[in-house]
Design a binder for these strands. Structure first.
Length: 298
DNA sequence: CATGGTCAAGTGGCA
DNA sequence: TGCCACTTGACCATG
C-alpha cells in the first residue's frame, strides 16, 4: 500500500560540505592515551551534529532515519554519566529528539554485530547487555518512545540451535524494561544463522519480539519461505508500523566482481511492500543520495 | 594534503 | 591452537 523510505547513519552531503558527522572516533591506542575526556569531546561534537542532520532531514522531507551507533566512541568502557560533558551532550540529545518528534521522523538504531546475547561466553553477554542499555539510554535522553516505534535492531548471529535460543532468551530477561520495549531482531543472510522462520517460531512465539525483515538477507537464507510470506509474517509481529531493511547487491548491479552480499551504492528497483504499510531503511552506500535516486524511480 | 594501510568487535571455518 | 575472513568507515602514518 505504502512505504516511507529513509537512510542510515551518514549524510554524505553534509559530511562533504561542512564536515558534519556523528562518527568521530579514535583507535584503541588513542583512547588509552587520552581517555574518557577525549571520548567526551568527540561525543559532544557528534551529538551537536546529530541535530544538524535531523534538521536537514526535515528540510528534505525524510521521515525515516537510523541513528549511528558511533556517537559515543568506546562506550563499552564507561557510563554516559562519566563523561565530563555529560550535561551538554544530554542537552544536545534532547534537542535532537525534539527535532525528530516535531518533524515526525522515525528514528531507530542498529547496535553492532558484536552484540551477541546468545553467546556461550558470559563476558560477551555482559558486554552485549551494556551496549544495548547504552543505546536505550541514548534514546531515553532523546525523549524517544520506549516502544518498537523507536526500535533497537540486532541480529541473533551465530548458528541456529535451541541452546543459542535458550541463552538468548535468558540474556533478554536481564534487559531493562525500556530496552526490552525497543528491541527487535533481524534475519541473517548466512544459511546456518537465524532465518525469518526461525526468528518467528523460536523468539517471536516466546516473547512477541518483532522481526525486522531484511529483503537482501532473505535472498541468501529464505529457509523455504518465499519473500511475500516471510515479509507478511514479519509484518504481523509488529505492534506498530513495521520497519524493514532494503538493499541490493553491488556485485550484480554495479558491474563489479566480489561478494554478492556486498551492498550496492544505490538501489535500482521499486520496493515491493506487498500491500503493507511499512517503513524502510535503505542500506545503500550512497546513503541519502540513494534515497533521492529511489524517489526518482518510476 | 592525499592516499592507503590499520583497526575494532565476535564467531566459525579451516589448517 | 590459532589464524583468517567476514564488514565497514574512520583513524592515522606515510610520502
Amino acid at each position: 500500500m505504502s512505504h516511507n523510505v529513509g537512510y542510515c547513519c551518514i549524510n554524505l552531503t553534509l559530511q562533504k560540505s561542512d564536515n558534519i558527522t556523528t562518527n568521530r572516533d579514535m583507535i584503541q591506542r588513542t583512547f588509552l592515551e587520552r581517555g574518557v575526556s577525549y571520548a567526551s569531546e568527540l561525543a559532544l561534537q557528534n551529538s551537536r551534529d546529530l541535530i544538524k542532520i535531523l534538521e536537514w532531514n526535515a528540510a528534505n522531507n525524510i521521515k525515516v532515519f537510523r541513528v549511528s551507533s558511533g556517537i559515543f566512541p568506546w562506550n563499552a568502557k564507561y557510563e554516559l554519566t562519566d563523561l565530563p560533558d555529560y550535561d551538554a551532550i544530554a542537552h544536545n540529545l534532547k534537542i535532537a529528539g525534539d527535532v525528530a518528534l516535531r518533524t515526525n521522523q522515525r528514528l531507530s538504531a542498529h547496535p553492532d554485530h558484536f552484540v551477541k546475547l546468545g553467546s556461550e561466553k558470559p563476558t560477551v553477554v555482559d558486554n552485549s547487555i551494556h551496549d544495548l542499555e547504552h543505546h536505550s539510554a541514548v534514546f531515553d535522553l532523546m525523549g524517544l518512545p520506549a516502544s518498537h516505534y523507536a526500535p533497537l535492531n540486532i541480529h541473533v548471529g551465530m548458528n541456529f540451535s535451541t541452546d543459542t535460543v535458550n541463552r538468548w532468551l535468558a540474556a533478554y530477561d536481564r534487559l531493562s524494561d525500556n530496552c526490552k520495549k525497543r528491541l527487535v531482531v533481524e534475519n541473517d543472510d548466512k544459511s546456518s544463522a537465524f532465518s525469518v522462520r526461525q526468528l518467528y517460531y523460536h523468539l517471536y512465539k516466546a516473547i512477541h519480539i518483532p522481526i525486522t525483515f531484511d529483503y537482501f538477507h532473505h535472498q541468501f537464507h529464505d529457509d523455504g519461505w518465499i519473500e511475500k510470506d516471510a515479509l507478511i509474517t514479519a509484518a504481523f509481529t509488529w505492534d506498530v508500523r513495521p520497519l524493514f531493511h532494503y538493499s541490493e547487491s553491488k556485485n550484480l548491479n554495479e558491474n563489479v566482481s566480489g561478494n554478492p552480499r556486498a551492498h550496492a551504492d544505490y538501489v535500482f528497483s521499486r520496493i515491493n511492500d506487498y500491500g503493507m504499510n511499512i517503513d524502510v531503511d535503505l542500506e545503500a552506500k550512497a546513503k541519502e543520495l540513494a534515497l533521492f535516486k529511489y524517489r526518482s524511480l518510476t
